[in-house]
Simulated scan of single mutants.
Amino acid sequence: MLTKGDEYPIHQTAEPIAFSGTDRNFYDRFFFCGYRPDGSGYFGAAFGVYPHLNIADAHFSIIRDGTQHCIHASRILGYERMDMECGPIRIEVIEPLKSIRLIVTNHDGISADLVFEGRSAPIQEPRFTRRNGTRMFMDLTRFTVNCHVSGWVEVDGKRESYEGAFGTRDRSWGVRPIGAQDPQPVVPPVIPQFYWLWAPTNFPNLSLYAHVNEDEKGVPWNRRATLMMDGANQEGGQHLHDDRFQIGWQPGTRHAAQARMDVRDDGGREHCVTWEPINLFMMKGLGYGHPEWTHGGFKGELAVMREDFRPADLDPLLLPHLHIQHVARARHEGGGVSADGIGIVEQLVIGVHGPSDFKGLVDGAGA
């Protein structure tokens, strides 16, 4: 089976581009977010391709006045992975690894036209590989880059400018759970466990990238903390050492009240970064954990829907509400310098996590 991608010198195997190994859970995904320098006007977007399910889906969501407005779209892929359009949502690659345009043509009152210009080259994060017993759960590569954002978003006739805004975008591809659940889970059954923090942050002349995955005992199995000066190339990042996150949880939730990371630079100097959440964004607005618009779910030839909800009114301990992002003010101290920044702190904490005193699937933090 030949597709448009086969015209380009991008093959990784002896097979046509339409075939992505043998795992039905293979995916290829774009993620975007943006906000003004004061953290207001937060929006997110996602676009996913699932070659072995023959499905593409896309989502756009924005917070305004405490309400999250969302567009969900899904279609049959038709095996063409190069067609980066799903319903009203379209992606244009202006310059690979540097400049991307995101377009949302008007659907039910929501539209947008935004350009993401990388502040530096992207950083490639360590490969994420995780198994449940002998079964592959995750095996993926991801790159991330903080961006200058320009353009506009319109909701119900009110258009707002994003000139001078900041944001982050990433690209990931590989294997992770998508679409319908496996009818035969791993035995014996165990309580699911996943601990994830991700905090890409924009400072005046540089970007901080920091993330961690931990097991139930709090031992990291994937982590990275890197500083990238504006204009740096792919080899220009300064990787930090001994990064340690501390989270103060809001009582009765698994949402952070504050976050802190302590790290050491190549010269042995200690640094501290703190984040203060100022706005809550539910990742289900982009399909993550959504009970009806899950990534890779089959919705027919083409389906598009608008959804609105108020994050503050949702039960924070329901499974679809555990995966969140906080827009957060940041402060960096150390190495003889200090700076204020703005970024996001993404959180997904399911199951046991000893350092947080979480003992069950979705129990909340104590008072």
Rank of each mutant, 00 (worst) to 15 (best):
G157L: 06
Q234F: 13
A210M: 03
E214V: 05
L208T: 01
D243H: 01
R159L: 09
D156Q: 04
N132Y: 09
V145Q: 01
L240A: 05
K217A: 14
L208A: 05
F143E: 15
T144N: 11
N132M: 07
V175L: 09
A225E: 04
Q238M: 12
S161Y: 08
L240F: 10
H241Y: 10
Y209R: 02
H148T: 09
G248N: 13
A165S: 15
A199F: 11
T226K: 03
Q246E: 15
W196M: 06
G167W: 01
M229F: 13
Q246N: 11
A199Q: 03
P192Q: 08
R127F: 11
W173T: 08
E235A: 12
R171G: 06
N202D: 14
P183C: 11
T201R: 02
V219R: 12
R244W: 13
P177D: 04
A199I: 06
H241S: 13
T201Y: 05
A232T: 09
M228V: 01
N213E: 13
D215M: 07
G237C: 03
V219E: 14
R130Y: 07
S120L: 08
D243Q: 02
P192Y: 10
E214H: 05
I247Q: 01
Q124G: 07
A180Y: 13
P185T: 05
E235R: 10
N202T: 04
Y195W: 10
R223N: 11
D215H: 09
R135P: 03
Q193T: 06
T168Q: 04
E160M: 06
N213M: 12
Q184V: 14
N146Y: 02
H148L: 12
P251F: 04
D182N: 15
F245P: 00
I123P: 00
T226N: 07
R171I: 10
E160N: 08
P177T: 01
N132D: 14
A121M: 12
I123Y: 09
R130F: 07
N132E: 15
D215W: 08
Y195C: 06
A232F: 12
L140H: 15
Y195V: 04
Q184G: 05
I123H: 10
N233I: 03
S172A: 13
D243K: 00
W173Q: 10
Q181P: 11
E216M: 05
Q184T: 14
A232N: 09
A232I: 06
G133F: 11
V190L: 14
D243F: 00
G164H: 09
V175N: 01
W173H: 14
W152Y: 14
S120M: 09
G218E: 05
D242N: 15
P200V: 13
S172T: 14
S120T: 12
G167L: 01
T141F: 13
S150P: 02
G248C: 08
T129C: 08
I191Y: 04
A225C: 14
G157D: 13
N222Q: 13
L140I: 09
V175W: 02
F143A: 06
T201G: 07
W196R: 02
E154Y: 09
P192F: 10
G157P: 07
D215L: 07
S207F: 02
N222I: 02
R130E: 02
